[in-house]
């Protein structure tokens, strides 16, 4: 194993209830790389995202999840977050009664410790990122995700990523439900953080996001396995030919 491997899934097998969803997934992400993960509905993309973060509903029945060579499997979600794993949720849940400001402060303190700049310094940093993501300041006083539109929720997810500065970011269909303007803002937010210190796994249905966040590698998940891995050029092929192209490539018996 090369020393710069940041994140690795090894023969990962996952059940949700009685249903086996991931049937042995292998993925290797080197430090600073951006990988796109695509696949048809029901292929297990969201399961993969949730299990990386440690969602209690999913049971790992085999294989391993390695971050900096360390297994995440025995760790609680909060411990994974503190190590630098971040999941941008597909459907961020509303938490009425917890203001955005209070939540952001609690999250940043939990992951990065209390800031030396005090509450004023913290808010200054938040406001700067909010401005970049075109989120109005009034959001700070609103209940977390309460009554937010789809685009507002996704922008808030990216705001959290910018504040928490994770080493590994997993974006679970961050583009779903976004119009083209919101998509551009969200992608700009993600790109703002890209660099050698951020490894990204971008899960999406649509090529349009991958035109804005250009991946180094593309993987296609089908029936709980990686059915195809390729370079960035494969995005175009997929766009032209759809998943049938993969089925033709790898043979119907696999998928």
């Amino acid at each position: 194993m090369s020393a710069d491997v940041e994140f690795e899934l090894r023969d990962l097998r996952v059940k949700n209830g009685a249903k086996q969803i991931l049937q042995g997934v292998d993925l290797t992400l080197r430090r600073g790389e951006t990988h796109a993960l695509m696949g048809p509905n029901g292929s297990g993309k969201s399961t993969l995202a949730n299990v990386i973060m440690g969602h209690p509903d999913y049971e790992v029945t085999g294989g391993d999840i390695l971050f900096h060579g360390q297994s995440l499997l025995g760790l609680a979600p909060e411990e994974r977050a503190k190590l630098g794993v971040f999941l941008a949720f597909q459907y961020p849940v509303a938490v009425p009664g917890v203001s955005v400001a209070r939540f952001l402060k609690a999250a940043v303190e939990a992951v990065r410790g209390k800031s030396s700049g005090g509450a004023g310094g913290f808010l200054k940093g938040v406001r700067e990122q909010m401005k970049f993501l075109e989120i109005t300041e009034a959001f700070l006083d609103r209940g977390l995700n309460e009554g937010f539109s789809g685009g507002e929720k996704k922008r808030l997810e990216i705001l959290q990523m910018l504040l928490l500065k994770p080493a590994l970011g997993v974006l679970d269909e961050t583009d779903s439900g976004l119009d083209i303007d919101a998509l551009r803002i969200v992608a700009a937010g993600v790109n703002r953080l890209r660099g050698p210190d951020l490894t990204l796994l971008v899960i999406t249905h649509y090529e349009r996001l991958l035109k804005l966040i250009e991946p180094d590698h593309l993987h296609v998940l089908m029936n709980g396995r990686i059915a195809f891995s390729g370079g960035p050029d494969a995005v175009k092929q997929l766009e032209l030919h759809g998943y049938d192209w993969i089925r033709d490539q790898v043979g119907a018996e696999v998928v």
């Binding site: 973060m53 440690g54 969602h55 209690p56 609680a76 979600p77 909060e78 994974r80 977050a81 503190k82 999941l87 949720f89 961020p92 849940v93 938490v95 009425p96 009664g97 917890v98 939540f103 609690a106 999250a107 939990a110 992951v111 209940g143 959290q160 928490l164």
Partner: peptide, 24 residues
């Protein structure tokens, strides 16, 4: 889970949610 995914420990997440519940 959402709060824990942001680094907030489970007990603290529960406390935060109970406090939030009564805020209304």
């Amino acid at each position: 889970f959402y709060l824990r995914a942001r680094g907030i420990p489970e007990a603290a997440a529960r406390h935060l949610l109970i406090a939030a519940y009564f805020e209304e």
